[in-house]
């Protein structure tokens, strides 16, 4: 009989460890030197970070089953934030600055920074601050936010090719981490990281490959994350060793499958999330507290 030797693969490099937030509740993500859940051949010092998202504006068109848990607090981002932490056990939050969206209310960068400061002061968990997804506006909004919340070590997102310089400089000056976003392409991810690392500390960068929901492009996100992790760990590419973030709650709850049934919706988001963790994601932004709870039970 042939003898079986477990084909273990030891990797000599680590994904960088990034700290978000400050004080006791600061969270570390990344730091692993192996693939997700591969405790049998490497170390994964930090479980995947799981953030719940809140908006600075009352949400429109949210499916009833995802609005329901927040119904009593959506008009007030501070109450919303506190409920996520105190009732739903969120260890991290993502504040989305919809109010500043040029295609919507188009509020000023100063106002957005002000509301961010109020939320950041009201809770002690780490905060991801998500801009408007419009390059130029985000350059104004996120630099203002960086200044207003100096020292809080926020995670500012998203920085893209067209605006990373201004925002990263402000983040560095005021002690924040950043999310470098490049859409579904490992080469673009690497290019952006190289550009950032010329002046920005690599351990404060998180990669966002942009994520798609189950049934709506999930496989692209899944494979791009696996590819980036292989570059980072197997090929030891230092520019691919940053932790990876996935933001997909909104995309999931926009699908007709999530809207038509509550349980199906929760599973839609939770399965999307666990699939990205299996690919190598280090930080998820989730919308439904039940999806958060479920993923936590399975992976932490």
């Amino acid at each position: 009989m042939m003898k079986y030797e477990p084909p273990l693969e030891k990797i000599s490099v680590n994904i960088r460890e990034t700290v978000v937030g400050h004080g006791e509740k600061a969270l570390k993500i990344g730091g692993e030197n192996t693939l997700p859940f591969h405790f049998f051949e490497g170390s994964l010092p930090n479980p995947p970070g799981l953030a719940l998202e809140i908006l600075d504006t009352e949400p429109e068109n949210w499916a009833p089953s995802v609005l329901e848990p927040f119904e009593d607090v959506v008009s007030d981002p501070v109450k919303w934030a506190k409920k996520c932490v105190e009732v739903f056990g969120a260890e991290m939050l993502c504040l989305r600055l919809l109010s500043a969206d040029p295609m919507g209310k188009n509020g000023s960068a100063e106002e957005a920074a002000e509301i961010t400061k109020i939320v950041a002061d009201a809770v002690d968990v780490p905060l991801i601050v998500w801009g408007t997804d419009m390059e130029e506006k985000d350059a104004q909004v996120l630099t203002q936010v960086a200044r207003a919340c100096s020292g809080k070590n926020l995670l500012l997102a998203p920085l893209v090719k067209g605006n990373y310089e201004e925002i990263a400089k402000a983040a560095m000056e005021h002690g924040h981490a950043i999310v470098a976003q490049a859409s579904m392409d490992a080469n673009l991810t690497k290019e952006l990281n190289i550009a950032l690392c010329k002046f920005f500390p690599p351990e404060k960068i998180v990669i966002d490959p942009t994520a798609s929901a189950l049934g709506y492009g999930l496989e692209y996100t899944f494979s791009i994350i696996e590819e980036i992790k292989q570059f980072g760990l197997a090929d030891k590419d230092k520019m691919m060793q940053m932790p990876i973030l996935c933001d997909f709650g909104g995309d999931c709850w926009r699908t007709k499958e999530a809207k038509e049934n509550r349980e199906q919706g929760i599973l839609w988001e939770a399965i999307t999330g666990i699939t990205f963790i299996l690919a190598g994601a280090n930080l998820l932004i989730l919308r439904h507290p039940e999806a958060l709870k479920l993923i936590k039970e399975m992976v932490v």
Partner: peptide, 16 residues
């Protein structure tokens, strides 16, 4: 069906 559909769609995605 509500538990099955997400699994079937995931299988379809990963094995495309």
């Amino acid at each position: 069906a509500h538990f099955l559909l997400p699994l079937l769609v995931l299988r379809f995605n990963i094995f495309s």
